[in-house]
Amino acid sequence: MKIIALLVSVALGVILLVATNDLPEWGDPQSPASTHLSRYYIENSMEQTSVPNFVTAVLADYRGYDTMFETAVIFCAGITVLTILRRSHRRKKKDVQPRPCREGQDIILKSAARLIAPMMQLFALYVLAHGHHSPGGGFQGGVISGASFILLSIAYDLEMLLSRLKERTIMFFSGLGVLIYAGIGAICLLLGGNFLNYSSWSKILQVSEVEARSHGMLGIEIGVFITVTFIMISLYADLASGGEMDEGL
């Protein structure tokens, strides 16, 4: 098996090495990848959407349809993990074997987590709101905000998190995020524009069409943020407890 694997990987390497000869010179501004479409994005996105960060503009506006289904993929992955691992019956309290590391509950860890978690959540909201002008956006902010809940559940335990945030609530919110995204697109249809063409929002928001696109992007980033946050919590809760939902890491 090892020899076959070695042969396959060496063959792959040789093929790719031969193929890289045909690639344009590294860093060439005139290479095909950097001329056609991306040139249009760089030259026009500031004018058309008033968002200085090209990546956000392309992600949320020009390729909004793509991003919507990426969000749906994340949602589906969360549901799949739940379906594969979740056990419907709960073990009796006395059957649960507490891990040795659980016994000495660390006061320093708990206090630190309690201080850090709100900061992380605030930072996540900053990353979300400032995604138009700096690196960041719904995906990154969502992961950071999900990580703050994961931190809390590591420092305390999973039951403490799940008693405050029911599984039903987690799945409700992760679906809500996708719904917000699709809803913003659908309202564009109702207002007479194309699906996910936020400029038609200008009729409601009383701003110019360019600014409406900027606001529309913020709206869908909020949807992405909610979905990613709750799916990350759900993934952690399922995987760290092996589907039992009673004991975390």
């Binding site: 090209f54 990546v55 392309v58 993929v73 994340i74 995906f139 992961v143 993934l235 995987l239």
Partner: peptide, 28 residues
């Protein structure tokens, strides 16, 4: 060029979600 950045940004986040599915299958 911002276009590959956009594609890869979503690829990473979708990647962690599918990684979760793979790990769930391993646990199963």
């Amino acid at each position: 060029n911002p276009l590959p950045h956009v594609l890869m940004l979503t690829a990473i986040v979708v990647g962690v979600a599918t990684l979760g599915v793979a790990l769930a299958i391993v646990q199963k």
